[in-house]
Each structure stands twice: as structure tokens, then as C-alpha cells.
């Protein structure tokens, strides 16, 4: 088998180049006036730090935390029972129901956001069913949109852990006198924690960094950190300040990685 190890080496080089080099670049850009597109002499500077104090940025950070935590919380609240119910099904259509959760991913996310956007205006296509919402630009709009987009990412990892769980453990718990509720919180839930951690992270991070969703459903009034990064990197071309702000994100991501590593070393719950 040892001879086969070589097969993994090219990818290792590729990953190191495309993961570590940009991370170092971001760090360098955030403390210098380097222009990546016309690389030349540059000097170190801390002038970008003042951007962190701008209301645009502080608001975005606050909004990112607020919306992503709420959306993740609601996704978990809904997603766990769904995963639990699907895993407990004994019908042969079980995989079909699970597949149904994946199908929406084939539908373009931007279009799904646009669909919600159109519904949240008082005058919408829903009027023909006698329904009218006026939610555009509210917290509800953003949270409904986020849960709708990211709920499958919460359900699937939890489902896959519950599905693989040895059913005799549940029988054993009951045999030892645990009632349904005790069986759940003493046996089933602790054993599904790796799925919960993966699901939480797979929901939290995209929600925190979304930019098309808050822009459309927030009617341009609500900005998340993703909007600020998009703005600095692609619109106002202030890549150095953008890099500094993305370091904030990277710190969060590092903590998420540590959390995932504690529960699922090889990432088996990620898909």
C-alpha cells in the first residue's frame, strides 16, 4: 500500500499553494500598501485599522453575528427533529425523502433569493392566492430566507450521523430503564453531536458571510460582513482594507475548524 501514498503528493502541493499562500497574502495585505495587481515595492502600514472602526464595518459585524446566530438557532430547532424523523423512517422511500432535501441545491440560490424577495413585497404573485406580505427589509425576511437556503445543510449531517447510529444502543438504554426522553438526551443526542457541530458550522458560516441575500431581502438597508468584503474587493477596489476585515472572518473560521476537529477528525459528517 505504501507505494500508493505518492498519489496524494501532487494534491498536497496544490493545496499548500492555494490555501497557505493566500492566507499569508491576506495577512501581508492587511498590514501593507501592497497592490497585488501591480505588485511592486510596498511599505508596511497600519492605516487600514481605522476601517475597523467605521460604522459601516461595525454594523456589518454586528448584523452578521445577529442574523447568522438566529438563523442557525432556528435551523437547528427545525432541523434536528427533521433529521431525527427521517432517520427513524423505515419505509423504502426514505432515501427519496432525503434526496428531496438535496434537490433544491440544484436550483440556483440567487433565483431562490429573488423568489423570496418578490414574495416579500405587498404586491406579489401571491396576490392571486389572496396572500400579501410586507416583510422586505425586515429581520423576518432575512431569517426566513436564510433558514430556507441553509436548512438542508443543518439536516443532512445530523441525519447521516443518526442514520449510522447503532439501533441496539437505543434498546440498551431502554433495557437499562431509561424512558424515551432520557434515552434521547443521555444516549441519542450525545452520539449525534458530531453531526450537530458540522450542521451548525455549515449553516453558521454561509449565513454569516452571505452578501446577495441580505442585499436583496434587506432591501439594501441591511449589510453583513460579506457585503463589506464584496464592496472593498470588487467594487471600491480597497483590497488592503478588505483583507484586514476578512482576517476577522478567518479567526472565526479557525475556531470552527477546531470545533469540527474535536468531533469529526476526518470530516465524515461534511457530506
Amino acid at each position: 500500500m505504501k507505494h500508493l501514498r505518492k498519489l496524494s503528493y501532487p494534491y498536497l502541493v496544490w493545496m499548500v499553494l492555494l490555501v497557505f499562500v493566500p492566507t499569508l497574502l491576506v495577512l501581508l495585505l492587511s498590514v501593507s500598501d501592497l497592490d497585488v495587481f501591480n505588485a511592486g515595492p510596498f511599505r508596511l502600514t497600519f492605516e487600514w485599522i481605522e476601517f475597523l472602526g467605521k460604522p459601516k464595518v461595525t454594523n456589518a459585524v454586528r448584523n452578521s453575528i445577529y442574523y447568522s446566530f438566529l438563523a442557525t438557532f432556528f435551523s437547528f430547532l427545525i432541523g434536528y427533529p427533521v433529521a431525527y424523523y427521517l432517520a427513524s423512517l423505515k419505509t423504502r422511500f426514505k432515501t427519496f425523502y432525503v434526496t428531496l432535501l438535496i434537490i433544491p441545491i440544484w436550483s440556483n440560490m440567487l433565483l431562490r433569493i429573488i423568489a423570496w424577495e418578490k414574495l416579500f413585497f405587498p404586491i406579489s404573485i401571491l396576490n392571486m392566492f389572496g396572500i400579501s406580505f410586507d416583510l422586505i427589509g425586515t429581520d423576518y425576511a432575512i431569517l426566513i430566507g436564510m433558514v430556507s437556503m441553509y436548512l438542508p445543510f443543518m439536516v443532512l449531517p445530523i441525519y447521516s450521523v443518526l442514520e449510522k447510529m447503532d439501533r441496539s444502543l437505543v434498546d440498551a438504554a431502554k433495557d437499562l430503564g431509561a424512558n424515551d426522553f432520557q434515552t434521547f438526551y443521555k444516549v441519542i443526542f450525545p452520539l449525534s453531536i458530531s453531526g450537530v457541530v458540522s450542521g451548525t458550522i455549515m449553516t453558521l458560516l454561509p449565513a454569516m458571510t452571505a452578501f446577495a441575500l441580505p442585499e436583496r431581502l434587506g432591501a439594501g438597508k441591511i449589510q453583513l460582513i460579506g457585503n463589506v468584503i464584496e464592496d472593498y474587493f470588487l467594487k471600491t477596489n480597497n483590497i488592503n482594507a478588505g483583507s484586514l476585515i476578512s482576517i476577522l472572518l478567518m479567526v472565526v473560521i479557525v475556531f470552527m475548524f477546531i470545533a469540527i476537529l474535536r468531533f469529526d477528525k476526518e470530516g465524515e459528517t461534511l457530506i
Binding site: 496524494s8 498536497l12 493545496m15 499548500v16 499553494l17 492555494l18 490555501v19 499562500v21 493566500p22 492566507t23 497574502l25 491576506v26 495585505l29 497585488v36 495587481f37 505588485a39 458550522i201 455549515m202 458560516l205 454561509p206 454569516m208 458571510t209 452578501f211 460579506g226 468584503i229 464584496e230 474587493f233 483590497i239 478588505g242 483583507s243 476578512s246 472572518l249 478567518m250 473560521i253 470552527m256 475548524f257 469540527i260 476537529l261 477528525k265 476526518e266 470530516g267 461534511l270 457530506i271
Partner: peptide, 28 residues
């Protein structure tokens, strides 16, 4: 396990971080 941690970076990383990282590398 170490290799898989590296492998999972693009999976866990939010798209925007992957996107801006690649943009910076490609610019070089």
C-alpha cells in the same frame, strides 16, 4: 487526519473567503 484537515479547508471555508483567497493568488 492531517491531510484531511487540509482537504476540508475549502469545504468549511465560506465561499467568500475561498473566492477572495483564489482571487489574490491568481492575481500573482
Amino acid at each position: 487526519i492531517r491531510f484531511m484537515i487540509l482537504n476540508n479547508v475549502p469545504v468549511i471555508n465560506p465561499d467568500i473567503v475561498t473566492g477572495l483567497s483564489l482571487m489574490l493568488v491568481f492575481s500573482l
